[in-house]
Amino acid sequence: MNWITNYVRPRINSMLGRPNRDVPENLWIKCPETGEMVFHKDLEENKWVIPASGFHMKMPAKARLIDLFDGGVFEALPQPKVAQDPLKFRDSKRYADRLKDSRVKTEQEDTILSGLGEVQGLKLVAIVHEFNFIGGSLGMAAGEAIVRACERALTEKCPLVIFPASGGARMQEGILSLMQLPRTTVAVDMLKEAGLPYIVVLTNPTTGGVTASYAMLGDVHIAEPGAEIGFAGKRVIEQTLREKLPEGFQTSEYLLEHGMVDMVVKRHEIPSTLAKILKMLTKQPVQEVLPAPIALSA
Score class of each variant (00 low, 15 high):
G35F: 09
E36A: 15
E36F: 13
M37S: 07
M37N: 06
M37R: 02
V38E: 12
V38F: 04
F39A: 10
H40G: 00
K41M: 14
K41D: 11
K41L: 14
D42K: 14
D42L: 14
D42C: 12
E45L: 05
E45V: 04
E45K: 06
N46T: 06
K47A: 09
V49I: 09
V49G: 09
I50L: 05
I50K: 00
I50A: 09
P51R: 02
P51H: 07
P51G: 04
A52D: 15
A52N: 15
S53F: 08
G54D: 02
G54E: 03
H56V: 15
H56K: 05
H56I: 12
H56A: 15
K58R: 15
K58M: 14
P60G: 09
P60N: 12
A61P: 00
K62Q: 12
K62P: 00
K62S: 05
A63T: 08
A63E: 14
A63S: 10
A63G: 05
R64K: 12
R64Y: 03
R64W: 05
L65T: 13
D67K: 14
D67T: 15
L68R: 10
F69V: 07
G71D: 04
G72R: 07
F74H: 03
E75P: 01
A76M: 13
A76I: 14
P78A: 14
P78F: 15
Q79H: 10
P80G: 07
K81V: 14
K81F: 07
V82P: 00
A83I: 12
Q84I: 10
P86M: 03
L87K: 09
K88Q: 11
F89Q: 08
R90F: 12
R90H: 13
D91R: 13
D91H: 11
S92M: 13
K93S: 07
K93I: 09
R94K: 06
D97M: 08
D97P: 02
R98H: 04
K100N: 06
D101M: 01
D101F: 06
R103I: 00
R103N: 05
R103S: 06
R103D: 02
V104L: 02
V104M: 01
V104K: 04
K105R: 11
T106V: 03
Q108N: 12
E109V: 08
D110E: 00
D110A: 03
D110V: 00
T111V: 10
T111C: 11
I112Y: 15
L113F: 10
S114H: 00
G115C: 02
G117M: 08
E118L: 02
V119F: 04
Q120P: 00
G121Y: 07
G121W: 11
G121T: 04
L122W: 12
V125A: 03
V125Y: 06
I127S: 08
V128M: 00
H129E: 11
E130Y: 04
F131R: 00
N132H: 11
N132V: 02
I134T: 05
I134Q: 06
I134Y: 01
G136A: 11
S137T: 15
L138P: 02
L138Q: 13
M140P: 01
